[in-house]
């Protein structure tokens, strides 16, 4: 087992010694900070509630209702129906606080982390890039010839590479949490160790612990990350070319939902990977294709994952390493 950790160490060393990796971390930091600046300057979020919070909430609701009415007018004129708007949802939440006599949380570090969950797609992008290069680069550099002549099975080398990619994603995720949390705490304040907030769920408005919500929100986003990274990893192992893998990986990550929409009339659409990567659909009850269940989606995800891994393994193990 210690052998495997040494291989893993090697792979992580090769990832983190390179400048491109640190550029990724730089981009992530810049985006988080830009987000904060945007939030402050546009004053989108009511960050402070004083002891007089009931009055403040009512005032906020009036403002929101006004904006909502304006928006409704706009949508009638343009003929586009926005459905339940962000404003209405916010008004409902505020009413929930008032009815249940709960003082709403001041915006702070935890909520900032939650709001940055969308950045997981950026981490997915980075991880796809790393995962696409980890095997094919060895071929490009010619170092594969020095890698595969050691008393270590190819299976072990491939496994260490795959795990290293997942660890990269995990480290980047933790980095995002830390940066979001610290910057949030400095700029907006700290909500306490186990704060709760009101959220819109399938069953209506609920008052839930924020930490749990952070974990589920990120968890849902991670499904797509893992699946697309594994896919890109497979493509790069089969074709030994990172450009194809990055291209396909990013295209499918962005366009996956569209693929499902195009084929959504057909019954077999539910077998498409992307119909199953959004597990949140079962929580909100807004299931894309009738007849799909959480169990079905998880089974499909596991099947796809295993197929990707097995194909990578077969191609990596069976192929001769001939000259370029």
């Amino acid at each position: 087992m210690s052998r495997f950790f040494k291989l893993l160490f090697n792979e992580l060393m090769k990832i983190f010694v390179r400048k491109t990796t640190w550029v990724m971390y730089g981009i992530l930091t810049v985006i988080v900070i830009a987000g904060i600046i945007l939030t402050i300057t546009t004053d989108q979020i009511e960050t402070e509630y004083s002891d007089n919070w009931r009055e403040e909430l009512k005032q906020e609701n009036e403002n929101l209702a006004e904006e909502n009415a304006e928006m409704k007018r706009g949508s009638e004129e343009s003929g586009i129906d926005f459905g339940v708007t962000y404003f209405e949802e916010q008004i409902n939440k505020n009413n929930y606080y008032l009815e249940n006599d709960i003082k709403p949380l001041n915006y702070g570090a935890w909520q900032h982390v939650l709001d940055n969950a969308g950045l997981v797609s950026l981490i997915s992008l980075f991880t796809i890039i790393i995962g696409s290069g980890i095997v094919s680069s060895e071929f490009r550099w010619g170092t594969i010839k020095l890698l595969l002549i050691r008393p270590v099975s190819r299976t072990m080398i491939l496994a260490s590479k795959f795990v290293a990619v997942l660890l990269f994603a995990l480290f980047t995720l933790i980095f995002l949490w830390i940066v979001s949390f610290i910057s949030g705490a400095i700029v907006f304040g700290f909500e306490g160790f186990n704060p709760s907030i009101v959220l819109q769920k399938a069953e209506g408005l609920v008052y839930v612990p924020l930490v749990g919500e952070v974990l589920t929100e990120y968890g849902y986003n991670l499904v797509n990350l893992v699946m697309m990274t594994t896919f890109a990893f497979m493509i790069s192992t089969i074709f030994r070319n990172s450009s194809i893998a990055i291209g396909l990986g990013i295209f499918l990550m962005m366009g996956g939902n569209m693929v499902v929409q195009i084929f959504s009339e057909y019954d077999w659409a539910k077998f498409i990977l992307f119909a199953n990567t959004n597990l949140r659909q079962y929580e909100t009850g807004n299931v894309w294709i009738d007849g799909m269940t959480l169990g079905f989606s998880i089974t499909m995800l596991i099947i796809y994952f295993v197929v990707f891994i097995v194909l990578s393994w077969v191609f990596f193990n069976k192929r001769d390493v001939a000259g370029q």
Partner: peptide, 18 residues
């Protein structure tokens, strides 16, 4: 062909780890 972006030392550590 060795890893161009690593030092000679790191390259050797890398292969010694195997």
């Amino acid at each position: 062909e060795l890893y161009p972006f690593m030092s000679g030392w790191k390259n050797l550590i890398h292969f010694a780890n195997m």
